[in-house]
Simulated assay, not measured.
Amino acid sequence: MANLTLRYLDELSYVLNSRRHLASQAKASSVGDLLNAEEDRFSSVS
């Protein structure tokens, strides 16, 4: 029984960590997209 609980917690933490990783990756890419858009806007002016 304890073995199953440990395995469950292990899988749960894995899922939570991968979701957090995906969320931070999505945030980073959206920030990168914003920066690229600003860069394009300023470079097209000059």
Rank of each mutant, 00 (worst) to 15 (best):
A2T: 07
L16I: 01
S46H: 01
Y14M: 13
E39H: 12
G32V: 06
L35D: 04
S46I: 07
V31K: 10
N36H: 10
S46A: 05
F42I: 14
V15N: 07
F42Y: 14
K27R: 13
F42A: 08
L16Y: 05
V45N: 09
Y14D: 09
E38G: 00
A28G: 11
R7S: 08
S43F: 14
L6M: 11
L9F: 04
S18Q: 15
M1N: 12
L9M: 01
S43M: 11
S13L: 07
L12K: 11
E39K: 14
L34T: 02
D33P: 00
V45D: 05
S30F: 06
E38P: 00
S18C: 05
G32W: 12
D33H: 12
L12Q: 02
L9T: 06
D10A: 15
S44W: 03
L12P: 00
A28R: 09
Q25S: 13
V31D: 09
L22A: 15
L35A: 00
R41P: 00
A28M: 06
Y14V: 06
R20L: 10
L9I: 00
L35V: 08
S24M: 14
G32S: 15
T5A: 14
L12N: 03
D10K: 15
S46E: 11
F42G: 02
V45G: 01
A37W: 01
N3F: 06
S30Q: 05
A2W: 04
A28C: 05
D33G: 00
L35M: 12
M1A: 15
H21K: 12
Y8L: 07
V15W: 05
A37L: 12
D40L: 10
E39D: 03
F42W: 11
R7T: 10
E38W: 06
L9P: 02
E39T: 15
K27F: 11
F42M: 09
L22S: 10
D10E: 14
Y14S: 08
D33E: 11
V45F: 11
S44Q: 04
A28L: 11
L12M: 09
A37G: 02
M1P: 04
Q25I: 02
S29V: 09
S13K: 06
L16H: 02
L35T: 01
L12Y: 01
Y8E: 03
A23S: 14
A26H: 09
Q25P: 01
R19N: 08
A26R: 08
V31L: 15
R7I: 03
L22W: 01
V31Y: 03
T5G: 04
S30M: 13
R20G: 04
D10V: 04
L6H: 02
Y14Q: 04
S44H: 13
S13M: 02
Q25D: 00
V15K: 07
V45M: 12
R19V: 12
E11D: 06
